[in-house]
Nucleic acid binder design. Structure first.
Lengths: 209, 209
DNA sequence: CCTGAAATCACATAATAATGTGAGTTTCTT
DNA sequence: AAGAAACTCACATTATTATGTGATTTCAGG
């Protein structure tokens, strides 16, 4: 079973040479190659590719926006970004948008198939510096209960943060509204706030809930 | 310049053999090896290692908690987790806690030095399945203003999300409280909510602000 | 056994928010 | 120039929240 591939790359020369590489590989089929991503959704539906190679910088719409568009209709298809710059904020944004990995253009001739293999088995080809950025972005500092909230208070703050009213919280925990009030008073004291909104904002941003 | 290494591993046999491997490598120095992480902070200060190898499952305190502790005092030192299970939620949690990568125990003999090299140049050794989880976790779906909020409404929702009252918002934008009310009414309609808290919760979680 | 923290409930009042209705002005588009 | 959308302000009523005070029960630790 061959993998069908779509290419998006505005540079005609590079588009051609990558296309030739794909076609020369018996495991791959080049479905089509485009110089822009204006009709990416339609093309996605038409070709149902197993893999997409996407230049990160194209005129008109960028490859990053294209990735966002693709992910709106298909969360599965692997997308490998092609870029001239490493350690670039664009690469990070592309990964946030849903790209599966990326390959430096100067490495295409030697590493394209490695990257394809890696991405097809669920991996994420990327340079060490980007890997560091990715890990840093997911780093969730441990916040050992800095406000000394009790278990009950945490539960109630969590419920509050979902948008529940006092009445709903009372029902949820089968306690009276006055008790909910009491707990929330205590929470406000501890968080040093004076309204639900402040409390919820603080709770979410500081990952208390 | 040799890299100094700390090992945390409760299994004595494995701890010994990894220690021997480290000592046999001319580029590395084994500072110390411990069977638990109870004093990890003190040991970190005492040895100032360039690299830490950390078993993910140890009795008493887990390696994940240890990573959190380490990261509270040192955000730089690379930490490679050692684990028997791949594709494990523990690995993901360890990375969230601040680990730099991980290595399957069955691969230690063949890949330990590769992993060390990779992590020392800023990389993040991990299996494809974990890489997929990591990328998925950072995937920020594009939410092109799904609720059709106007610029003003977005500003006000943002201010609201910081915990500001109607009064404060009115002052911030130099408009009357009644106008703030009007905007917020419209925001509630568009977001389909009926309270500040709901709106703020929705705004933050769906990254509208 | 005593103390303190946590959790529960009640009552009261002032402040704020939620919702409805109505309307004037500006700005951009057709 | 007409129309639509956005922004502005006002007034009114009800609902909910914020804050204070006080009290009871339970449970863990000294």
């Amino acid at each position: 079973m061959k993998l069908s591939v779509l290419i998006y790359e505005d540079n005609a020369l590079l588009r051609e040479s990558v296309g030739v590489m794909i076609q020369a590989n018996p495991g791959l089929i080049l479905e089509a190659a485009f110089e822009n991503v204006l009709n990416v959704e339609a093309e996605l539906r038409a070709y149902k590719p197993d893999l997409i190679l996407m230049d990160i910088d194209m005129p008109g719409m960028s490859g990053i926006e294209a990735v966002q568009k693709i992910r709106r209709v298909n969360n599965q298809v692997p997308i490998i970004m092609l870029t001239v710059f490493d350690d670039n904020v664009h690469v990070f944004e592309a990964l946030q948008a849903g790209a599966s990995g990326y390959l430096l253009k100067k490495h295409i001739s030697t590493k394209l198939f490695d990257a394809i293999d890696e991405v097809m088995e669920g991996g994420a080809p990327m340079s060490p510096s980007i890997a560091r950025m990715v890990l840093a972005s997911m780093h969730k500092p441990a916040t050992e209960n800095p406000y000394q909230l009790t278990a009950r208070e945490k539960e109630i703050l969590t419920s509050l943060s979902k948008g529940n009213s006092y009445k709903l919280i009372a029902a949820e925990f089968a306690i009276s509204i006055d008790t909910v009030r009491t707990h929330i008073k205590k929470i406000y004291e501890k968080l040093q706030v004076h309204s639900q909104t402040e409390a919820v904002s603080k709770a979410i941003h500081e990952k208390l809930v």
